[in-house]
Amino acid sequence: MNGLLGNDLERVCHRAAELVARWGGGPVPDLGAFQVDDSGWDFRVFHVGPWCLRAARRPEAAVRMEREAAALAVVRTVVGLPMPAPDELAPGVTVGPWLEGRPLTAEDVPAVADELAHALHALHALAPSAIGVEAGEGHQEATRQEALEVLNQARQHRLQSPDVAVLAVGIEDPTLWSYPPTLVHADLTPNHILVSEDGTALAGLLDWSDLRVDDPAIDLAGIGCAVGEESGDLLVDAYLRCKPQGAAIESALKRRVRLREAWGRIVEELHNAGCRRG
């Protein structure tokens, strides 16, 4: 995929080095010191010494990046964890301090589940109006239609995963589409959750470009979807301990998390098969 800084990765690195030097007022960094993550759908990420430079791949991602920077100024004050603090260098290009840590693994979850659950509870309790967004009318039904579209794609491409049946049943269950929408990170996968090297504490939450109003179960499903439902259950249980809601509400949340885990795995399978983009 191309990026707003260009297509040829070597030239992009040169351009990124020049931008970091201009921003920091120092010499152009040696390209040998660069670490480049070129795997993201929306952004390229460059690790340049103590800095993180991020470049959007296309104009719509640049717009999301701009919204993300504005929202983080508010969200950072309530979540209580290290988060990106980007400055804009050019349209679709930001730089900020590099957050040290490594991606979460299943082995880390027991130690950090409570800390992550409290951070998510704080995020979900934040009024969407605080970052200038609101849930639209008919949000839940629109989301159910998105799930139905994914289900139809899975059937069209003859996916055999048991997740297809889980999604099909969930789409027809009205109790799974009556949740109160909250602010959500919406892409809380292990790669976006940093932990300390010994795995005993959270070191940061990354990539807030999908921040929006939606089902809080989305944020609880990312771990289970990626590293196993047992790990996901640890987070859900920790989240429910933050503010007990009663058996019926807790049961509905757990079932929505299962639905979201299945939905996420189906989307990933469609991506891997080249059947779906974005």
Results as ranks from 00 to 15, higher is better:
Q153Y: 05
A168E: 12
R158Q: 13
D163S: 06
T182A: 15
L151C: 10
Q160R: 15
L151E: 04
Q156K: 12
V166R: 13
E149M: 03
P181I: 08
S161M: 04
V184R: 05
S178W: 07
T175R: 14
H185M: 12
R158F: 00
R155K: 14
E172Q: 14
E172L: 08
P181M: 11
E149K: 12
V164C: 03
V169I: 10
V169W: 02
H185F: 11
A165H: 06
D163F: 01
D187W: 06
V184M: 08
V150W: 00
D173Y: 05
L148M: 11
A154V: 06
D163P: 02
A154E: 01
H185S: 10
Q156A: 12
V164Q: 03
T175M: 12
Q153C: 08
L151I: 03
Y179D: 04
G170L: 05
V169L: 10
L183F: 11
E172D: 15
D187P: 09
A165Q: 10
L167V: 09
E149C: 04
V164A: 04
N152E: 14
D173Q: 11
A165K: 04
A168C: 06
N152D: 10
R158N: 06
D173G: 09
L188F: 08
L188H: 11
L183P: 10
G170T: 08
I171M: 11
V150E: 04
P181A: 10
L188Q: 14
A186I: 01
T182F: 07
R155W: 03
R158D: 05
L159T: 01
T182I: 10
G170D: 08
Q153A: 14
P174A: 00
V184S: 10
S161F: 01
T182E: 14
V169A: 14
V166G: 04
L176W: 10
W177E: 06
V166T: 14
Q156G: 07
V150Q: 04
L167D: 01
R158H: 13
L148E: 11
V164E: 00
G170W: 00
V164W: 03
L167I: 04
P180W: 09
A154F: 04
T175S: 15
Q153H: 09
G170C: 08
T182Y: 05
W177V: 08
E149W: 11
E149D: 12
A165E: 11
R155Y: 02
R155A: 02
L167E: 01
L159D: 02
A186L: 09
L167G: 02
V169R: 12
Y179R: 09
V150G: 01
T182Q: 14
L159I: 05
S178L: 14
I171L: 15
P174F: 06
I171S: 13
Q156I: 00
L183R: 10
A154N: 05
S161A: 12
T189S: 14
A168N: 07
D163L: 04
Q160C: 11
P162L: 02
A186S: 15
Q153K: 13
L183I: 13
T175W: 05
